[in-house]
Amino acid sequence: MTVNARLAEILLVEDNEGDIELTKEAFEEAKFRNNLHIAQDGEEALDFLFKRNGYEDALTPDIVLLDLNLPATDGREVLEIIKADKHLKRTPVIVLTSSQADKDIIGSYDLHANCYIVKPVDAVKFMDVVQHVENFWVDIVCLPNQNK
């Protein structure tokens, strides 16, 4: 409701270009207006979130979609850093990954991930899931506005 009035700021942290493409298309078809930012590795994501190294003007995202397997600084570290930050920890982090390992699922929740979603293998379902995520996290959920 609060978000309805403005663009939803979404940060997608993903290194696989195919998945980036699919997510982009899903958000383009979404009924709510949104602003999708993409970070292709952990460092870039952190730069964006902490508004540094060229991202000084970035907005704090309303939600973060985070892949776990990233080069160099991987998703787990990014998650840990987000949830350790006094302000950023309010931002819901949706883990979106191809790993189905218990270790990753439990590990993510231990690091206070807000939800954990396994990427569906086929494209239709993938799009479906991304749209569900958007419906829920953008439309239904009441999010903190941190860009006042």
């Binding site: 270009e17 292709q40 590795d41 080069p71």
Partner: peptide, 16 residues
């Protein structure tokens, strides 16, 4: 990264 780089599938850079 000095230790991690020897793990299987561990990369420090993007594919591009």
């Amino acid at each position: 990264h000095h230790k991690k780089i020897f793990d299987v599938f561990k990369r420090l850079h993007r594919k591009n």
